[in-house]
Simulated assay, not measured.
Amino acid sequence: MSDAKVTWYFDFISPFAYLQWQDVKRFDNCRVECRPILLAGLLKHHGHKGPAEIPSKRRFTYRHVQWRAGRKGIALNFPPAHPFNPLNALRLCIAAGGTPEAIDQIFDHLWQEGRAGESIEDLRPVASRLGVVDLASALADPQVKAELRRNFQSALADEVFGVPTLVAGDALFWGEDATGLFEAWRQDPGILDTPTMKRLDTLPVATARKA
């Protein structure tokens, strides 16, 4: 499927987004629009807990992503503390134009170099490399904040529930481990239209957990 338009939703808080970015930035015959969003907003909207909010899941998730990074030959060093507030990093990305270079630099600062990324001082080195001189003003820019909100609304319209997520048409691929499925779908979009796959769209719910 050549020249497909794809939207990639991500948050710098996610180490899996960092891993998937290494693939996304190398996609060929594919127009990727990268949209930073706040994962915490998605979790609140859908009433979910983040993986780091359940102690045993947090430990497993960290081990799993570290292992996957090693298997893929990608340097991954956790920041000093996690989870952290990624809002300023997201705004910096938008203020720097949301370019692949900006995404690269911020991800590398956090997940390759293992540096903090919450405060203005934390982000000043990467902002300098991106040519953002007045970082405080850039992060407070109403247009930057508005774009981040638009990205979030776009994610809700696309029925996104987590990050990282690739969206192409009405097909949604959630998680770094869904990259293979996405690439297979690009080669043959019909793989989601087989009788077996279509049955899943209307599979009845036998029981539901009570709130």
Results as ranks from 00 to 15, higher is better:
Tyr18Asn: 05
Pro36Asn: 03
Val167Trp: 00
Lys25Pro: 00
Pro55Gly: 13
Lys49Ser: 13
Pro204Lys: 05
Val167Cys: 13
Val144Met: 04
Phe78Ile: 13
Leu38Gly: 08
Ala184Tyr: 07
Lys72Ala: 15
Leu130Cys: 05
Arg186Asp: 08
Asp193His: 15
Arg63Ile: 11
Val132Met: 02
Arg149Thr: 08
Gln153Ser: 13
Pro83Tyr: 02
Asp104Leu: 01
Val6Ala: 04
Ala138Cys: 09
Phe27Asp: 15
His45Val: 03
Ser137Val: 09
Ser56Asn: 08
Gly180Leu: 13
Gly114Leu: 12
Ala138Phe: 03
Gln66His: 07
Pro79Val: 01
Gln187Trp: 07
Arg186Glu: 15
His109Phe: 06
Leu192Ile: 12
Leu123Trp: 11
Gly162Cys: 09
Leu92Gln: 01
Leu156Gln: 05
Pro164Asp: 00
Pro79Met: 11
His48Asp: 11
Ala155Phe: 00
Ala17Cys: 12
Ala127Tyr: 05
Leu139Pro: 06
Ala146Phe: 00
Glu113Phe: 11
Val6Trp: 03
Tyr18Arg: 06
Arg199Pro: 10
Lys49Gly: 11
Phe78Gln: 12
Leu172Tyr: 12
Pro86Tyr: 03
His48Ile: 06
Trp8Met: 07
Lys198Met: 10
Ala140Leu: 10
Asp141Phe: 02
Ile94Thr: 00
Ala69Ile: 07
Ala211Tyr: 12
Lys44Trp: 04
Phe173Arg: 10
Gln66Lys: 12
Asp108Gln: 11
Gly98Lys: 04
Asn88Lys: 13
Pro204Gly: 12
Asp134Lys: 04
Gln187Pro: 01
Arg149Pro: 10
Leu130Ile: 01
Ser56Phe: 15
Gly169Cys: 05
Asn77Gln: 14
Lys57Arg: 12
Pro51Ser: 05
Phe107Ser: 02
Trp111Lys: 01
Ala69Pro: 07
Gln187Met: 11
Asp134Pro: 08
Glu159His: 15
Ile191Lys: 01
Leu148Gly: 00
Val65His: 06
Leu166Trp: 05
Tyr62Glu: 14
Arg209Thr: 11
Thr7Ala: 00
Asp201Met: 15
Ala95Pro: 01
Asn85Asp: 09
Ile37Arg: 00
Lys145Gln: 14
Ile54Leu: 12
Thr61Cys: 13
Ala184Asp: 13
Phe161Asp: 03
Ala75Pro: 14
Ser119Phe: 02
Gly50Arg: 05
Ala157Cys: 07
Tyr18Lys: 11
Asp177Gly: 01
Lys25Met: 04
Glu113Val: 03
Val32Met: 02
Asp158Arg: 01
Leu110Phe: 02
Glu159Ala: 07
Arg199Phe: 15
Val65Trp: 06
Pro15Arg: 10
Gln66Phe: 12
Ser137Asp: 13
Leu123Arg: 08
Pro83Cys: 04
Gly190Lys: 06
Leu192Asn: 04
His48Gly: 15
Trp185Asp: 08
Leu43Ser: 03
Trp67Pro: 09
His48Phe: 08
Pro51Lys: 02
Val163Met: 05
Glu121Met: 12
Leu181Asn: 07
Leu166Ser: 09
Ile13Ala: 10
Asp193Met: 13
Pro195Gly: 08
Thr194Ala: 10
Asp177Leu: 04
Gly175Val: 02
Arg115Leu: 08
Gly131Trp: 04
